[in-house]
């Protein structure tokens, strides 16, 4: 399941909702992404971070990634939540959770989804300090991390 939303989410409740009452899941791997207090582009502390996205394409790319992950690993379930809008330092940005019988599928698919998400799902971060607004630049290591999955099965 994928969700793109402005609202905050409760990751404990999300995990409980997807694990309660089922006995096929042996392990869950989760990644949570947060807004840091100091951004990439300014030495001054962040006041806020605005996440812009391309409605429709974001959901489409996340859905395609979900299909790829389910084809590649034996997953019981999968959850990606990505927020957009104005966020503050400490706020949650993204949650990825993968549910599997065994840990390897859960760990690997979770990292795959986070790595791919960073280069493929159309989101852009605008960091705001007291005096500046600056669009974040991608890390070259993010591109390398995403490409790694194209050459390693």
């Amino acid at each position: 399941m994928i969700r793109v939303q402005e609202d905050d989410f409760d990751f404990g409740k999300e995990l409980a909702r997807l694990t309660t009452g089922r006995t096929d899941v042996g392990g869950v791997a989760t990644f949570l992404g947060f807004v840091r207090g100091h951004g990439q582009t300014n030495s001054a502390p962040l006041v806020s971070m605005t996440l812009e996205h391309y409605p429709g394409m974001s959901e489409g790319q996340l859905a395609a990634m979900e299909s790829e992950a389910r084809d590649r690993w034996p997953l019981c379930d999968l959850l990606i939540i990505h927020r957009f809008g104005d966020l503050k330092p400490g706020d949650k940005i993204v949650m990825v959770a993968t549910f599997a019988k065994h840990r390897v599928a859960a760990f690997e698919s979770c990292q795959f989804l986070v790595d791919k998400l960073k280069t493929r799902v159309p989101f852009w971060k605008l960091e705001k300090t007291k005096n500046n607004s600056t669009w974040v630049m991608p890390h070259t290591s993010d591109t390398a991390a995403a490409m790694h999955w194209d050459s390693n099965v």
Binding site: G33, L51, H53, Y54, M57, H82, I93, V94, V114, L117, K118, T119, R120, V121, P122, F123, W124, K125, W135, V136, M137, P138, D142
Partner: peptide
């Protein structure tokens, strides 16, 4: 058609 800078989500 859409044009945009390199993606920085996640």
């Amino acid at each position: 058609v859409a044009f945009f800078p390199p993606i920085t989500g996640g």
